[in-house]
Amino acid sequence: MSKAALIVIDVQRGMFAFPDQPPHDGEAVLSRIASLVARARETSTPLIFVQHDGGAGHPLEKPNEGWGVHPGTGYREGDAVVEKRNPDAFQNTDLQERLADLDVSTLVLTGMMTEYCVDTTCRRAFSLGYDVVLASDAHTTFSKPGLAGDMIVRHHNEILGNGFAKIETAADIEFKQYEALQ
C-alpha cells in the first residue's frame, strides 16, 4: 500500500537567527510543524527533515550552529535527514530513493523558504509523479522590499494549489487519508 510522508524543509536554527527580520508568522509556523511531526509519529508516517547547506559564510553553513534543525519542529536525534545544497530537495540527494524504499506516493510539505525551497521541491515532487499536499499555514519566508511575507505565502498557496499540490491547513491534515491516493 502506498503511503504519505511528512517532509520538513530547511527549518533550521539559522533561519531564526535574525531578530530584526524574523520569518513571517515564524513561531506559529514552528508550532504547526511540530504538531504535524507529532501526528506523523503517532500514525507511524515516515518523517524526513531536509537541511540546506548554504556554503561558506551562509547562516546555514554546515556544520555551524545555524545548520541544525530548529528544535521547535519536534526534531529528535536519529530522525531521517536529507542534506542538500540546492533549492530542490531531490537534486543530488537520495530523497527519491528513500521515498521509494518507504513506498511513499504522497508528500506532505512544510518548511522554509516558501518561494525557494518549498516551491521548487513541490514542483519537482509533482513532476516526479507524487501526490503533493502543501500545508498552507506550515511554510514561511521573510518579507522582501515591496512584498510582505504573508503575501508571498498566500501567492504560493494559490499558485501551487492550481495544479501542483492540494492545499490544506496543518490542522486538517490526517496522514492516513492520503494512503493510496494514486
Rank of each mutant, 00 (worst) to 15 (best):
M1G: 13
A4C: 02
I7P: 09
V8H: 10
D10G: 10
D10I: 09
V11P: 07
M15I: 10
F16N: 05
A17T: 02
F18V: 06
P19S: 05
P22K: 01
P22T: 05
P22G: 00
P22H: 06
D25I: 05
D25H: 07
A28H: 11
V29M: 05
V29C: 01
L30D: 03
L30T: 08
S31K: 14
S31G: 13
R32M: 03
L36A: 01
L36S: 01
V37K: 01
V37A: 09
R39S: 14
R39Y: 09
R41Y: 08
R41K: 09
E42S: 15
T45Y: 10
P46Y: 08
Q51Y: 13
H52T: 06
D53F: 09
D53M: 11
A56G: 13
A56P: 14
P59V: 00
P59T: 05
P63C: 10
W67G: 11
Y75D: 06
E77Q: 11
E77P: 12
D79E: 08
D79P: 00
D79M: 01
V81T: 04
E83H: 15
K84D: 00
R85L: 13
R85E: 13
R85F: 14
R85G: 15
P87M: 13
A89Q: 07
Q91I: 14
Q91F: 15
T93W: 03
T93K: 05
D94Y: 15
L95V: 09
R98F: 12
L99W: 06
L99I: 04
A100G: 01
L102Q: 08
V104C: 06
T106S: 03
L107C: 05
L107K: 10
L109H: 04
L109A: 04
T110H: 08
G111N: 03
M112T: 07
M112S: 11
M113F: 15
M113E: 14
E115L: 09
Y116T: 12
C117I: 06
D119M: 01
T121G: 00
C122Y: 05
A125L: 01
F126Y: 02
L128T: 01
L128K: 08
Y130V: 02
Y130I: 06
D131R: 12
V132D: 04
L134W: 02
L134E: 06
S136R: 10
A138Q: 01
S143K: 03
K144P: 12
K144I: 15
P145I: 14
G146T: 13
G149A: 06
G149C: 03
G149P: 03
D150F: 11
D150G: 14
I152H: 04
R154H: 13
N157M: 02
E158T: 15
I159A: 10
G161H: 04
N162I: 03
N162G: 11
G163I: 00
G163T: 04
G163A: 00
K166C: 07
I167H: 01
A170C: 05
A171Q: 12
A171D: 15
I173F: 00
E174K: 15
F175G: 02
F175L: 02
Q177D: 12
Q177A: 15
Y178H: 08
E179W: 15
L181M: 15
L181S: 05
